[in-house]
């Protein structure tokens, strides 16, 4: 299974390396969100600082939705999905590989987005340990759901509208926990941020478990 995961991870990252979709399209998109949000709030720096954690994770969710759409469309083109099924690759391994590849692309997006928010909104970075753990676990949770819903909607007519409807609401607990933990890490929340990080870990495990358990069914029958 791990070998298959590695193969799919390499395939997805190689596709990304050749097309540069994340760097050329998704990253500029999230940067546009950062700037537009500032315009919408009349560049009020106090409000921007207060909203920065939530805005960061909302932008990450939109970015994830875009990347999942793209991966789903690639798997539909030229019978790639069928070829993957016929190759005998373990579906659970393929799911894990896809999740890790999506996580890697999200980490790149988050790094650029985080730097942009720090620079444009004047955020004082602190609590780096909690931020890193929160970022890692939330990214894994988002990618775990994205890798379930991507192949699930791949063959559907109108998947561009169906995917956000399914994908965004289910990420609500991840968004809330990640935003709260990030606020605490940046010194604006109350209480400890670690229970939120623990909740993110729990959600990631649940979503990964569902993904691994349903991978075979989805690969064979969708």
């Amino acid at each position: 299974m791990l070998r298959d995961a590695w193969l799919v991870l390499r395939r997805d990252l190689r596709l990304e390396w050749r097309t540069r979709t994340t760097v050329n399209q998704v990253v500029p998109f999230v940067l546009a969100i950062v700037l537009l949000f500032a315009f919408a709030l009349d560049a009020d720096s106090a409000t921007l600082v207060r909203a920065s954690a939530g805005l960061f994770w909302i932008a990450v969710l939109f970015a994830a939705s875009m990347i999942v759409q793209r991966v789903a469309s690639v798997d539909q083109r030229d019978g790639v999905g069928d070829a993957l099924r016929m190759s005998g690759i373990d579906p659970a391994g393929a799911y894990i590989g896809r999740t890790l590849a999506l996580s890697a692309q999200l980490v790149v997006t988050e790094a650029v987005l985080g730097l942009a928010i720090v620079a444009f909104y004047g955020i004082d970075l602190r609590g780096l340990g909690l931020l890193a753990v929160t970022g890692g676990l939330a990214t894994l949770g988002i990618a775990a759901v994205g890798s379930i819903y991507g192949p699930l909607v791949a063959g559907i007519e109108g998947r561009e509208t169906v995917l956000p409807l399914l994908f965004l609401p289910v990420q609500a607990p991840v968004l809330l926990a990640a935003a709260r933990a990030s606020e605490v890490a940046l010194g604006r929340g109350v209480g400890s941020g670690w229970p939120w990080a623990a909740m993110l870990g729990m959600l990631a495990v649940i979503y990964l478990g569902i993904g691994v358990a349903t991978a075979s069914t989805l690969a064979e029958e969708t």
Partner: peptide, 17 residues
């Protein structure tokens, strides 16, 4: 049949909330 499988997976994921 495919639709039923897809819906079942969405139903399971949705219950997590």
């Amino acid at each position: 049949n495919v639709r039923a499988v897809r819906a079942a997976v969405v139903g399971i994921v949705s219950a997590a909330l």
